[in-house]
Design a protein around this nucleic acid. Sequence first.
DNA 1: TTTTTTTACGCAAACGATGCCGACATCGAT
DNA 2: ATCGATGTCGGCATCGTTTGCGTAAAAAAA
Lengths: 347, 347
Amino acid sequence: MYEPITIKDIAKALGLSTSTVSRALRGSYEISAETKKLVVEYAEQFNYRPNPIALSLKERRSRSIAVVVCEIANNYFSQAINGIESVAYNRGYHVIISQSHESYEREIVNVEHLASRSVDGLLVSLSAETNQFDHYKNLHEKGFPIVFFDRITDEIETHKVVADNYQGAYNVTKHLINAGYKKIAHLTSAAHLSISIERLEGYKAALRDNKIPFNDKYVKNCNHGGMIYNEQEDAIKSLLNLKDKPDAIFSGGDKLTVSCLAVLNELKVKVPDEVALAGFSNSPLVELMKPGLTVVKQPAFEMGQTATELLIKLIESKRPVTEFEKIVLQTEVFERESSAKKKPKKK
Amino acid sequence: MYEPITIKDIAKALGLSTSTVSRALRGSYEISAETKKLVVEYAEQFNYRPNPIALSLKERRSRSIAVVVCEIANNYFSQAINGIESVAYNRGYHVIISQSHESYEREIVNVEHLASRSVDGLLVSLSAETNQFDHYKNLHEKGFPIVFFDRITDEIETHKVVADNYQGAYNVTKHLINAGYKKIAHLTSAAHLSISIERLEGYKAALRDNKIPFNDKYVKNCNHGGMIYNEQEDAIKSLLNLKDKPDAIFSGGDKLTVSCLAVLNELKVKVPDEVALAGFSNSPLVELMKPGLTVVKQPAFEMGQTATELLIKLIESKRPVTEFEKIVLQTEVFERESSAKKKPKKK
DNA sequence: TTTTTTTACGCAAACGATGCCGACATCGAT
DNA sequence: ATCGATGTCGGCATCGTTTGCGTAAAAAAA
């Protein structure tokens, strides 16, 4: 089968010791020029590559980091992963991706599996189901490097990278208000998630600043973060069945935004005439939709990059780190037809 | 820092040898019930996890496989990866994802990096730039397990998993013809890619079977597989500038299909009235577009699953494998407005 | 009681690479 | 001629785990 050449093979072939070969390959000054040349050329010829696993065992590090997200088939995360990869690649780290599919159990299994020794650090965006953090706390207390991004928790003190969810939600809600909508509903993920909380706050603040009363019947949570279509469907239907039907929906998630449009289309509810729509999404396809969707876009790529830089700093730090940063990046609102100015009602 | 407990620690604490601990943990019959209990309980208490790196070094395998694709931010690939992950996870394998971004060089670097010893096998979908395969041939000749999926090559004899691109292209072209379109252009990726070749053949066959002459001016290649928006834009513009302008476009790729619609919208070309559109895509969002897109969908998840099963079979095979399978899965056409029946021209 | 068998465990090598330390030869200086 | 310095290399331990082999003590058979 597949048997790569080792340092031993070279040593044997050249009548040297493994230590000499090792040193020759790393250009140690203790090795004569001729021996070096001999070894290096032989290694070149037989395409010698140091065994990364042996190195990992020796150096007690694997030069790989893991990222734990709920779904890579989500534009925000695939963009973030591109950012992660770009930094990791340049710094000589492998990236291992694992998906929780919004399941608490899967998340635990993945993290345990990864952490034992096979990765040097973790980049985490919490699953929608997760509201306990012992599996991270244990690791973190032992000094294992973890950086949270996007969906974070206050319960663990480490570096964090987030979008300004509050401001993003505020801006898009305000945009809806400015466009003439007054009865704005909010469709969001599990209530305990950091992003849900912040976006809800931004939404509330925008209402407050514009003297629109907050109505908690207008807030619907999808606890599976958009994984289950029926959940969104039911939520939206119950919104539309309210006595005082909303005239706009602000949705707080990629999948939610899109499936919101799908449900409205299915129910033949006209967007934006009957109900306007705007929400968080990083999909490049939203502008092609019917109607083009107004979205808040997160700087996913940059978030991935920043989080990775912080993680590598953590990994390569000599001393235990006790000062942690929380980096907040700005979002951007893209206005499209789905939130076009409200037409005066002809009753 | 983070120092997990080892078998040695347990041995020292319990006054045993490492071999006894090791055997106790694996339930060897040579160890007395009491000692076993002692060791297992201690291990449990201190949350012992065998060091996967040490195991890899010993067993000369890492229980991880790598997948090399061009882009995870592509619905086809993210779905395929979900399939890969689902099988790998159940069989106890890690999945390492690396992206070539359609670059030949990146692909080589990634493959070399991965193959040396850190992964047990490779799942590959070729980048658009790749038309040389030495980096795979070298590995494959040494018995390194590789399975190709989606974008494959004839030059390497191993397991392969593909969609029935010929039939898919045939079906969707025929659908366009049946809808009344006669001047059907074809926008596709790099000409040398297996998927491009097969889809072109299917397209040609459908034309032939319906007595429509093939016009090579109607075929446009985007050599970067949709990575560069300008490339698609130029290709589509030049199609629209032909004396005998096509009345439909069949596109052969996720990104191409979508950016085709984007360009047409931008140019204010009405779809399908002026130009109809249909193409390969696995995006769940195409039905929400303006207009809803007619697409050929590949069984991405199943392809990922099948490829992974084959790869693991290859990895775990005792003997060198010489008999290889090529598995072809069927595609499905979803008809929507973008290829609605052609209206009679009012000239 | 003696011999054989069984039970239960330890020793050491191995996986690939690194690095400390020691060994030897050569050379210049005394 | 002897000593120390220098240059060049090998031996060995190490990382964590598994496993073949050896062996002591206990149990069973004689």
